[in-house]
Design a protein around this nucleic acid. Structure first.
Length: 316
RNA sequence: GGCGCAGUAGCCAAGUGGUAAGGCAAUGGUCUGCAACACCAGUAUCCACCGGUUCAAAUCCGGUCUGCGCCU
């Protein structure tokens, strides 16, 4: 069976993905699937830099504004929702364009990673957490070493979150997660894809981030957070771990000053952008689209992308 | 002009004779069910400058420059 087409447009936060994705979608008859862990949530518009209905300009968008902020969200649900959306798009003979900055989510669909064993066990996790708290993260790591030395080797003892997942996987399946991961790594992508990573000069990107945070604040991000808090959104929620939300929640709690909150949002967003770039550097088969190489002209970038897609037979 | 205090990495900062703590930033990296999460690794042959004392000085002495405060 012939591989289905898939276009990916990603890059660090604030680099300008949204604008370019619209032009690309119009050009190739595509529909956009958001690969963004925050834009999936309703009522989180300003802080997630969500595209508005008007801005969509008739281009179909999926996985935006579909969950309540109090609902959990993770790669697995993202993957399922993305698959469903893609089926619909293919049935309309359109091309899906994955747009967003969450590299892990993109990887999950491009490489079609199998997450199965979906029954999670909250009690087990709580027990692990308790152990880490009481006896230290090393103690938990020791438990992992006993059942899955390969994973123990790969995961730093302090990274309790990952240690717990590895432990949980073993607890649920009786198999080390390292074995499962290795199997997944061997898999070939079921798609004929083009993975574009939009990037810019570091300094320029950072300046853009600072500017965008200021503009979010000016647009009323604080009120948005107040409304969410009034709805009962607490820090522990996945949604409230988003940049801009957690800091402002701390400010509203009186934990930190407004000035400090703003400083942290900017700083942590820059850190985030850096991590995103590190992630994409590691991904295979990535096509870098450096804004400096295209004189910051969206049309030139667009032309380059369309040409690449036709060369690869991904679009006509 | 006089007196006093200060001058350590991009920033904050410890060290007051024995061969440069720490934090932040910057940089690089990890990531296969919370990923805008969680986590890791480096980063001053040198302590404003010049000279002196000493086996040994960022640390003591003298001078110069700069900043701050007080006095005239």
């Amino acid at each position: 069976m012939e591989k289905k087409s898939l276009v990916i447009l990603t890059g660090p936060t604030a680099v300008g993905k949204t604008a370019l994705s619209l032009a690309l979608a119009k050009q190739i008859g595509g529909e956009i699937i958001s690969a963004d862990s925050m834009q999936i949530y309703k009522y989180m518009d300003i802080g997630s830099a969500k595209i508005s209905r008007e801005e969509m300009a008739g281009v179909p968008h999926h996985l935006i504004d579909v969950l309540d902020p109090r609902e959990p969200f993770n790669v697995v649900t993202f993957q399922q929702m993305a698959r469903t959306a893609m089926e619909g798009i293919y049935s309309r003979s359109h091309i899906p364009i994955l747009v967003g900055g969450t590299g892990f989510y993109i990887q999950a669909v491009v490489r079609d990673i199998d997450f199965t064993e979906s029954e999670d066990d909250p009690a087990f996790r709580t027990a692990c957490d308790g152990l880490a708290l009481r006896d230290g993260p090393e103690a938990l790591h020791d438990k992992l070493r006993a059942v899955d030395p390969v994973s123990a080797q790969a995961i730093h003892p302090h990274n309790t979150k990952r240690v717990i997942r590895a432990l949980e996987y073993y607890h649920l399946t009786g198999q080390p997660i390292s074995v499962h991961n290795q199997e997944q790594q061997r898999k070939e992508s079921p798609y004929a894809f083009a993975y574009f990573v939009l990037n810019d000069e570091r300094e320029r990107l950072y300046r853009q981030i600072d500017r965008r945070v200021d503009s979010m604040l000016a647009q009323g991000l604080l009120d948005e957070v107040r409304r969410l808090a009034a709805m009962g959104c607490e820090r522990r929620l996945v949604s409230m771990q988003g940049l801009g939300y957690k800091e402002l929640l701390d400010y509203l709690d009186g934990t930190i000053s407004y000035e400090e909150a703003v400083y942290r949002i900017k700083r942590d967003t820059r850190h985030f952008a850096k991590r995103q770039i590190t992630w994409f550097k590691r991904e295979k088969d990535v096509i870098w689209v450096d804004k400096t190489d295209f004189e910051y002209d969206d049309w030139q970038m667009l032309a380059f992308m369309v040409q690449t897609l036709t060369e690869r037979g991904i679009c006509a």
